[in-house]
Design a protein around this nucleic acid. Sequence first.
DNA 1: AGCTGGTCCTGATGGC
DNA 2: TGCCATCAGGACCAGC
Length: 276
Amino acid sequence: MPELPEVEVTRRSMTGVLEGRTVRALRVYERRLRWPVPRALAATLAGRRLQRIDRRGKYLLWRFEHGVLISHLGMTGSWRLYPYGAAPERGPHDHVDLDFDTALARLTDPRRFGALLWHRAADGDVERHPLLASLGVEPLDPGFDGARLYLATRGRSAAIKQVLLAGDAVVGVGNIYASESLFDAGIDPRVPARRLGPTRCARLAAAIRRVLAEAIEAGGSTLRDYASADGAPGQYALQARVYGRDGSDCPVCGRPIRRIVQGQRATYWCAFCQRR
DNA sequence: AGCTGGTCCTGATGGC
DNA sequence: TGCCATCAGGACCAGC
């Protein structure tokens, strides 16, 4: 479940191995991802040296001198890293091999909601790319705090859960961590965002930072088919306090965890603990 | 059959 | 009325 922690764990597990390495070849087996993988991408990348891998929201930014490879994992995508020559035979959902001189990065994505795009350096700062331009603040950056969240939620009548998911107030909070953060902050997920005052915004911002940081620390989530790039499953699901636990006891008050649907997405919460 | 992680796009709605 | 921002729903898929 690639939410921000999973993407960050992926980034960290690849960056040390691949930064400074040269692309031997890019092989595209299935270009029908969310948008078609550009036909010229193989020629664009062959022989080029990867400078570094950054992250913006849930996007990975593979920086080269002449441009940036933008990748997104969608709902089911993952990058796996193999030592050179050690990759197993390609499976049915392995769509791209990014072959470096020392290792192979392989993109797997059963549902194909992910993306692999190219941004030319000549077209300017990648942060101004249409996919990145309207993203909210990075939750783990120092610039994200209660005051920032308070400003970003003014005039927003939608439920706070849905404003978190929208990604224009703060990036990287997906369905799982939205429930977990709101539980941590003791805030009802149904509250219109504009009704949160500075106090609750401060609690929520702190909760988001804490939950995401803990998840990164734990190596990402292990729900469904996620695994970090070295294949080790994440542990976060073992620590989820409300997500996926409807009917079981609230870890704080012991009352049952509820499941509701907001915007066609499941929300898990404790009606007793989340009314502050 | 119905549910599942993300998010772009479209068309509708609502405030000024 | 018109403009703009926001909102809600649909779309993309495969696997369980």
